[in-house]
Amino acid sequence: MISFGIIGTNFISDRFIAAGSMLTNFKVGAVCSRSINTAQSFANKHNIVHCYTDVVEMLDSGNIQALYIASPTNLHAHYAQIALEKGIHVLCEKPVTSNSKELKQLIEIASRKQVLFMEAMKSTTMPAFRQVAEHLNEIGQPRRYFASYCQYSSRYDAYKAGNVLNAFKPEYSNGALMDIGVYCIYPAVMLFGKPKSVKASAFMLDSGVDGEGSIILEYDDMDAVVMYSKISNSSLPVEIQGEQGNLVLDRVSEPSRVTLMPRGGEQVDLSLPTIEQDMYYEIEHFIQLLEENKKQSPINSFENSLITMEIMDEARKQIGLVFPADLK
């Protein structure tokens, strides 16, 4: 049984508990929030015994073996560093840090302390994406990866009304690229590795973050085209085009349906049954790694997370998106 401590009491943490509760070897031992009332309310909702307002106190309590971080992105590195130094395993929401400098520091600590550290990129652990990876060779030489994640944010209505919420504030290391563009980039890195070059463009909001953008990743024999937005919607699927066919995924962030379309042949449905609580798969994978005494995921690996973060660093440099965390 792995007992998790949770930092963050928003809807993501609710989903984390709902998914994890489907596993027999999962429990939540403690929750931490800046407000004891918020922590207690969250604990009551999920039958959590221990509440804290001090992260160090929770980590030193002996009530948890692993930490799930769902705080604002600008705080990810701070909390992860404290936990890793104390020998607590860490599952951290995407994007795992504000920049690659922070991530390199965390990787060094995790390696030195010999504890498990993983970015909670759920999509790459889901059955549909595993099917893509297993059947990629059936489309021949890949020539293009295309991924779109454009989802109009309800917070943008507030923004236009003059109320700038955290999702559109650079001090929280937020914006469209960090929030949802990462979902498009990470699978490309997992499938095709580090690109030769990055070309980015974006529409910047007055608050200082990007509302939408596009990125082209250049490889030796193919390219990856990524589009993301928090100020418009899109229904486009994910497609990997090869010389002998193509693979189509229904949704980059929560894939459930995958179709193989051989050139000149009949399409094949490669979809596998998928649990509705889709965070289940990342939690199951993380716990399995712990039980096998592994210190790094072969899926959401240090290398994949670092390449993804370096791509986003370069994209932000090109579009002029700077976070306070970059200046430390």
Score class of each variant (00 low, 15 high):
residue 43 A to V: 07
residue 324 P to K: 10
residue 292 E to I: 01
residue 143 R to Y: 03
residue 30 A to K: 02
residue 248 V to C: 09
residue 192 F to P: 04
residue 36 I to F: 09
residue 105 Q to R: 14
residue 243 E to F: 01
residue 318 Q to A: 09
residue 209 V to G: 00
residue 142 P to K: 10
residue 100 S to H: 10
residue 219 Y to N: 07
residue 288 Q to M: 09
residue 320 G to Y: 08
residue 323 F to P: 04
residue 148 S to W: 00
residue 283 I to V: 13
residue 290 L to C: 10
residue 73 T to L: 02
residue 85 E to T: 14
residue 174 N to D: 10
residue 191 L to G: 05
residue 301 S to N: 14
residue 137 N to Q: 12
residue 178 M to R: 12
residue 301 S to R: 13
residue 296 Q to E: 15
residue 188 A to H: 05
residue 16 F to A: 02
residue 320 G to L: 07
residue 67 L to P: 05
residue 186 Y to S: 06
residue 302 F to L: 04
residue 1 M to S: 13
residue 93 E to Q: 14
residue 20 G to M: 10
residue 322 V to K: 12
residue 153 S to G: 06
residue 251 R to L: 13
residue 143 R to I: 15
residue 160 K to F: 00
residue 309 M to F: 00
residue 44 N to I: 08
residue 226 V to H: 02
residue 60 D to K: 14
residue 242 G to E: 12
residue 86 K to T: 05
residue 36 I to G: 02
residue 134 E to I: 06
residue 283 I to C: 05
residue 120 A to L: 01
residue 46 H to Y: 14
residue 132 V to L: 11
residue 231 I to S: 05
residue 120 A to G: 06
residue 55 V to A: 10
residue 22 M to W: 01
residue 313 D to W: 09
residue 104 K to I: 11
residue 46 H to C: 04
residue 148 S to C: 14
residue 80 A to N: 07
residue 231 I to P: 02
residue 306 L to W: 07
residue 310 E to I: 10
residue 190 M to C: 12
residue 119 E to H: 04
residue 71 S to C: 14
residue 267 Q to V: 06
residue 228 Y to Q: 06
residue 96 V to K: 00
residue 226 V to E: 03
residue 269 D to T: 12
residue 328 K to C: 06
residue 2 I to F: 04
residue 92 C to G: 09
residue 4 F to D: 03
residue 160 K to N: 15
residue 322 V to N: 04
residue 96 V to Q: 04
residue 232 S to Q: 14
residue 289 L to S: 08
residue 103 L to T: 07
residue 5 G to M: 05
residue 316 R to C: 15
residue 52 Y to I: 10
residue 260 L to K: 04
residue 21 S to T: 13
residue 101 K to N: 11
residue 285 H to E: 08
residue 174 N to V: 02
residue 78 H to N: 10
residue 183 Y to Q: 11
residue 253 S to W: 05
residue 82 I to E: 13
residue 277 Q to S: 13
residue 237 P to V: 08
residue 2 I to K: 06
residue 35 S to E: 13
residue 239 E to F: 03
residue 131 Q to L: 05
residue 157 D to T: 15
residue 101 K to V: 15
residue 9 T to Y: 00
residue 104 K to E: 15
residue 277 Q to E: 15
residue 214 S to R: 10
residue 258 V to S: 03
residue 311 I to C: 05
residue 95 P to H: 02
residue 120 A to E: 08
residue 213 G to K: 02
residue 326 D to E: 11
residue 312 M to P: 03
residue 109 I to C: 07
residue 300 N to R: 03
residue 211 G to K: 03
residue 309 M to L: 12
residue 155 R to N: 11
residue 266 E to A: 09
residue 16 F to C: 02
residue 241 Q to E: 15
residue 148 S to H: 07
residue 1 M to W: 02
residue 323 F to G: 04
residue 110 A to Q: 06
residue 1 M to Y: 07
